[in-house]
Design a binder for these strands. Structure first.
Lengths: 240, 240
DNA sequence: CGAGGTCTTGAAGACGATCAACAAACGTGG
DNA sequence: CCACGTTTGTTGATCGTCTTCAAGACCTCG
């Protein structure tokens, strides 16, 4: 079952029973991944696209000398490489961040969906477009925000994305992302991520115990980050 | 006439006479812009998407305190805000970089094109996907490359994008982009862009006279940048 | 209980930012 | 065609954020 995807798409447009049925039947495979396990290889030619069903995944590029950059963090409901349908060759890898369940949808099914259900086709385009919008905001973060702003911004973003999926309660959510991951996502060093998070904790803005991240003062964290959720194109503000 | 767009799309797929005809008839407006003039406003609800016909444009976000980040540089043939079709509200601005001519295509025309010509629809998707691929590489640059690598990389990218459009000769091309622009594109300060470019010039890798950028030693510049054009999804390597 | 991953800490240094001032190039109008 | 104002490019000095390296503490899980 790929309920999270349906939940997400329905935040954009109402889906008919037929459409849901079609989506539910479309995955050719379901699989669980260990933290850090590769879901799709950089340079590969996938014939399926991946829906995250449970847990977190990330897309990243790795340079010849080992430096790596995370391009996107994906949560349940995300169709994370829809573009491989148009581009064929994958210019980045996808891997699990923490334990993660993935459904694979063959490209033929996507083609059929587009042919049969214009509404689904639009929903896929919207998924693609919101992914790109998030990427744009990350660019702003990497280019123009300080470490402090950038990390706060990312934590706010995750809250706003997880909430409509029912994965955040009281401004807290499961957080399997390591500080090394955060470094690769933000373009910072692990050490500096650590110190910056300590700063945020010291100010009583967040806590990070075990794998649970809690935002203690969302209002102030948003101010620190300069966070405006508009770019997420959420249907309505989460009631928080 | 929007020949550059046709040239670009044809590098991906052959277009029928009908399809070309349709494209040529679709713009509702042609307009010239002065350097730095706004083509589309951040926060606006455009009903048309823009094709760059001549010159350069950029998409950028501006933060409340004035910091700004360029998200993409667009050259002739680029359909630069196709995503506004799905997203309605524009989360960034578009403006001219140097003098620039723009054709505007109403969203209805895009809708019609999708309905009538599946091939065009795919070409639009491909355009969207390659734009996103370029954005991904920029993220790697901003997060993980040094100023030197990043600027070299950008200059290589522009060469590889301009060449198939017939806008680069002998590894040289028109370059209306200011150093302040480069700073906003890379996330660096203008001063540091200046010094880094001087370094590249000092090593005999490039020259920048007037508005003409010449790459004197592409091989070495690519090595400095760690440039691999794969992410551009070009049909074939430019013959340089 | 041990092992590997993750987090934390300190010290030193590099890369790039900032500020300020000036030079050069450009375009515009007189 | 020159004068002028504005934009763009250049330079120097100083400062700060973030990186790097290295080591040790903590934690989790088999």
């Amino acid at each position: 079952m790929i309920d999270p995807l349906i939940t997400k798409l329905e935040s954009y447009t109402r889906l008919s029973e037929e459409e849901k049925e079609f989506l539910n039947r479309s995955p050719s495979q379901f699989r669980d991944y260990q933290p850090n396990e590769t879901i799709a290889f950089q340079g590969g030619y996938p014939t399926e696209s991946c829906v995250i069903v449970k847990g977190f995944a990330c897309r990243f590029k790795i340079l010849p000398d080992g430096r790596q950059q995370i391009l996107a963090l994906h949560i349940p409901g995300d169709f994370c490489d829809l573009h491989s349908f148009s581009l064929k060759k994958l210019d980045h890898a996808i891997s699990a961040v923490g334990p993660c369940s993935v459904a694979r949808v063959p490209h033929e099914k996507l083609q059929q969906a587009s042919d049969l259900f214009p509404n689904l086709s639009r929903a896929f385009m919207w998924n693609l477009a919101t992914d790109a919008a998030i990427a744009r905001e990350w660019m702003v973060s990497m280019g123009r925000r300080s470490a402090r702003e950038q990390l706060s911004h990312l934590l706010c973003e995750l809250l706003y994305r997880l909430k409509p999926m029912g994965l955040a309660e009281n401004d807290a959510y499961e957080f399997p992302i390591t500080q090394a991951n955060l470094g690769d996502a933000t373009g910072l060093s692990t050490v500096h991520v650590n110190r910056t998070l300590q700063e945020l904790r010291g100010e009583g803005l967040i806590t990070l115990r075990g794998k649970l991240l809690a935002i203690l003062n969302l209002q102030r964290l948003k101010e620190v980050a300069g966070f405006d959720p508009g770019y997420l194109y959420l249907p309505a503000a989460p009631n928080g």
